[in-house]
Amino acid sequence: MKMIVVFEKTPRLRHIGHLDLMRAMQRALRRSGLPLKYSQGFNPHILLTFAAPLSVGMPGKREIMEVPIEGEMTGEAFLEKLRPALPPELPCLWARPVDDRHSAPMAQLAAALYEAELDETPSGLSDAVTAFLAQEEIPALRKTKTGLKPCDIRPMIYDLSLNSGKLRMCLALCEKATCKPDLLLSSLFEFAKLPRPHAIVTRTQMFGKKDGAFYPLEEM
């Protein structure tokens, strides 16, 4: 069976890159003594997939990985073993066993919620957010493998709100369409003609989509 695991990448570890985080999780799983599955080949490694890589510099409140294991086990039993194998800066929060055929979180991913903690809130930003969202089209330049490509990011913004210095952004995150929070922030501040303040952006939740509605990815 497989375990869907929710963990936190705390702000202190935000500078750890995706591959380093993968390796850290591999080693944590090895320390845990859990019945893991290994890949074949000369350098076998633990089978493990993350729902979506997290950018360097970004903390994640509810990150998701999928861990195939041998045999049956409850989420609580799994957590009990994994918890002491992780440093306090990288705690696991929740786990849920699913069938091997259960579609992978990576495949079900549709959107993510981000929170940008602005060092200062320029006056007029609140109105600018409203006006920004009222646009029918938001042209932007998206970075792709083949260079900068013009695109419309309006359909990829599911929600945007400002609340006591925090910008909450719900943005598309899937294979077909992804809007990175950085792109949204630069578009927004350019549109508002305001200086962009320094901000730490945290990914707080990931979502899947079913019958037109969003659900927390870990519960899908």
């Binding site: 705390t10 202190r12 570890l13 500078h15 750890i16 890159g17 380093d20 850290a24 080693r27 944590a28 320390r31 194998a85 992780l86 440093p87 306090p88 800066e89 990288l90």
Partner: peptide, 10 residues
């Protein structure tokens, strides 16, 4: 930057 942050296991 990761070499300046600590927070390692153990």
């Amino acid at each position: 930057p990761a070499r300046y942050i600590g927070g390692e296991m153990n």
